[in-house]
Structure formats: C-alpha cells, structure tokens
Design a binder for these strands. Structure first.
Lengths: 257, 257
DNA sequence: TGTTTTTCTTGACTTAAATCAGTGTTTTTA
DNA sequence: TAAAAACACTGATTTAAGTCAAGAAAAACA
C-alpha cells in the first residue's frame, strides 16, 4: 500500500463537501493544535483552499513577494534555494500538515522556492490576514514561532548531517526520519513510497546520485531494506538506526510494530 | 586595530552609568529597530543585564529549560549542537547586536548550547516577560519572527555551502560574510580579528583543521589575504568574492573602501 | 501502443579532502 | 616565568565519494 494513496483516503474521510479546520483530521499536527474552537473558526475563515497543484508546479518562487504561508493538506513538496551560480540546494521535503514558507518572514520576498512532488492541495494563509490574527490570538503566534523554531532545529540537524556524517549514515538517517514522519501521520513506518526522485534525495543529502543509488543497492544486499522503485520497506529498523547514529529510534524499533 | 577592542569602545560611548535600549548604539541593528520610544522603554524594563560571561563559559546548555533569549551586547559566542554520539556541530557565530536562543521556541528546552568566544556581555530577555510583551507590542512580535526567519535563511545557505561548495569556496565565503558583518557594525571590512579558533572554523565549515590551515596559507600565497594569528586582512576582496561565488559582494568590493 | 525521454543502476577511474605523523607557536596556568 | 596545554602549520599517504561512461528500467508522451 502506498503512502500517497493513504493520505488521500485519510483526508477524504475528514470532509463532507467542504473542508474545515475543525473537521480536518490533520488538525492535531497542523497549526490549530493549541487553539480553541472559537479561535479555530476565526482562523478557518481566513484560509484559502484553491485548486490542487500539479506535480512540478511551484507553490511560490524564490524572489516572489512574501504574501502567504501554506499548510500542506495532501501530497508533498520540496523546498530549495538557488545560488547566484544557478546551483540548487533542496532544503527540505514537506508532507501533509506541515507549514511551508515561514522563512519568508526574514524579508519581503521568499528566500526559496517550493515545488510540488506530486499532486498537492494546500491551505493558503494570506499574510495580511494572518498578521491581524496573530495579534488577536496569542496561541496562534506561539504556534507559528514554535514552527519556525522547529525549522531552525531541523536545518541545524541537517548541517550536522552534511558536515559530519558519511553517505551511508545520511541515507539511513533520511529514511528513518521519513519513516517516523509517516508513522506520526497514521501510516506504516515500515513501508512507504518516496515521492521524491533519487536526484532530489542526493541533492538534499549533499551526495552524487550514483552514490545514493549504490547505497540503496548496498542496503538491500545487507538486508536493511527492500525497494521496488520508489517503494521502500524497512526490514532491519534496529540496525538501520544504529547506522544512522540514533539510539532513540533504535529503541522504538523493537517497541513498535 | 582589533575588532574586539573597537566593539568595547563603541559600546562604552553609548552608556553613561547604565545601559538602556534607547541609548544603545546597537539599537539600529538589534531588536528595537521597529519600535517607538514608548515601546522601547517597555522592552527596556524587562531586560536583565548581568555580569560579563568569561571566555569558555556557557550562556545556556543544550537541554536546559528554555527561559530566555539573549542579545549580544559586546563580545561573541558560538552556538553548537551535540549529537547523541558526542560529535559537536557549530551552527553559528554571533556578534554584538545579534539574538541567540531563538530556536528554543521549538520545544521547552534549548536544542543547542551557546559558549562565549571571548569576554561577552548580553541583554537577557526572560521568556515569560517577552511573551507578555509580544502580545502588547505587535512590532516586537514581527521583529522576533523576522529574526527567526533570518536564522532559517542563514542555516539554509549553510546547507548549500556544506553540500555544494569546495573547501576553498567555503572559507572564502566565511571570511567575506564575517567581513560584511563587521562592516555593518561600523568596523573595518578589510581588517578584523577572528574570535574563533581554526578548529571552530573547520568544525563550522565541515572541514578538517588541517585543510583550513592549508587554505589560509594558500590564500596568503595567492595574495588574497594576509594573516597574523587571528588577525585577518583582506587584500583582494574582488577575487575572494569571485572564489566565494558571490557576485553581489564582488561589486561592493570596488565600490567601498 | 510504441517511442522518446527521463530516471536509475552499475562499473572503472579520479580526486579533493581526510587522516596520520611530526614540529613549531601561542596561550594558559601553576 | 617556566612548564604544560592547546592551537596552528606542513608533509606524506589514504580513502570516501565524485566523475565519466554506458546500459536498463520507468515514466511521459504522442
């Protein structure tokens, strides 16, 4: 069973004809977690829910005026910065319930681009409305800052990965991190579909595609995972965690499933 | 003339007996930029200005309860995360006027440590008071979020450095970035003192110390810079910028000085 | 449906930076 | 102020990951 298909089912069950924050099954992961019902309704009125974004389309482009932040409802996006020289660096992958575009707060334009990895629907939070709401709902401000804090923490963990870990360690870490994120969304931690290409993974992890490809093969030979194209199954979670240098996850491997 | 000495002079001129936000010469760089005088006073009342922190002392430690953010008044700090395996990754260096500890918003403990690189004085902004103030002064909230956004952008630029740039490019970029930050604080962009060790630089840039040492020597042989211990003078800013892959800085080289 | 295009994999070879080893130089502290 | 410790530099060697090249498999398209 594919992760993508399941997210769609998951969401479908949460809406009648229209989607609302109060009935969205992602609300416990998304922004509204700390908000009461009345605040949730206020927020809900401000959210734009447009047509789906097709694979390859941009949600916003580096340099565009910073006018909104987005919550992923279904699908997945990648965010990336482009250097003056034209090189691209993928800074993250975002799944359902995650917020995209927060780094826009640093200036008046987005410092990165966001592109859909598959057909994706989003909740758009227009900045002007959000600004007003932030002053009205203290819980919303805190939640937003918490999200920004988490992004800083993520990026700093990534700096450690890029500067201190071997190629094997990076890929192991990447797979387990994704696995955990799927699990928190109610999907299998063992088996999931990678919505990004090998090129995207290698760019994100600071490696050559060939290296990533070789490690996938190697991980299969040593029976840590199996793959079938973009479908990945974790066989030996414990050993994979050991490789990733993550003792916490390792314990969870034995506990869960 | 050393950067450190000058920062001290700079600050000294801005205080009579007591330091206040309204008289601090860093205020145009620090938090209060967007605040009016009355708001500034409100903020000022909340700030704790303790004794100086000695070189090597921690401002806060990874895992400590998140209870305050800090503005550097004089001196410099490094922030770093420690992996479960014990490896350290320096995530940034902070100079006078910069805010430290913002990533604490991601949870209830600091996800990194901050250590003084030299004798350092800070303005402590206790979280409980800051929370109240954020709800009272909308400009303060915006300013804080802008600072967090800038940190995200910085870390993502760093990801690009670590994953795409050669050792030479990284060091060139590092030196020019520092140069620019000194200049914005009113010091020489050409000549400054590195408050961090070569080991710190190499850790931050994801390189071995030996590599950093060799590049310093190489940069001197090709007459891009001169060094005398921690003192650095940029001779050929233009070519250094070229190396760093930064066309914007390159133009500024010819304009300024 | 077959054809083009993109993505993925594998092998052979190269290289940038790491590691190892040793020496000189500051800084700390006793 | 002398000894110890930490820091900085240099050379020789190794190695992990990159590059180049080419074929296989999937995806996109027409």
């Amino acid at each position: 069973m594919s992760g993508e298909q399941n997210i769609v089912d998951f969401i479908a069950s949460s809406r009648g004809n229209k989607t609302h924050c109060s009935t969205c099954s992602l609300s416990s992961l998304c922004l509204p977690i700390a908000l009461n019902n009345s605040d949730l309704d206020t927020l809900d009125k401000v959210i734009k829910r447009g047509r789906p974004i097709q694979k390859g389309e941009l949600l916003f482009k580096q340099g565009d005026p910073f006018h909104a932040i987005y919550a992923i409802r279904t699908g997945a996006v990648k965010t990336f910065t482009v250097a003056p020289s034209g090189e691209e660096q993928i800074t993250g992958f975002n799944l359902a319930s995650e917020l995209v575009g927060l780094s826009g707060y640093s200036q008046d334009t987005y410092p990165l681009s966001a592109k859909a990895l598959e057909t994706t629907t989003v909740c758009e939070l227009p900045l002007d409305k959000l600004e007003v709401l932030c002053d009205e709902i203290p819980g919303l401000r805190k939640q937003l800052m918490k999200n920004m804090g988490s992004e800083i923490r993520h990026d700093q963990q990534m700096m450690l990965q890029l500067s201190k870990r071997s190629a094997d360690e990076r890929l192991a870490h990447f797979l387990l991190e994704l696995s955990g994120r799927f699990e928190r969304r109610g999907f299998s931690a063992k088996s999931f579909r990678l919505s990004m290409s090998r090129v995207d993974i290698s760019n994100y992890l600071g490696l050559a595609v060939e290296t990533v490809s070789r490690i996938f093969t190697r991980f299969q030979k040593s029976e840590l995972i199996t793959t079938e194209g973009k479908e990945v199954t974790v066989i030996n979670c414990s050993e994979l965690s050991e490789l990733a240098g993550n003792p916490t996850i390792k314990e969870e491997c034995n506990a869960a499933h």
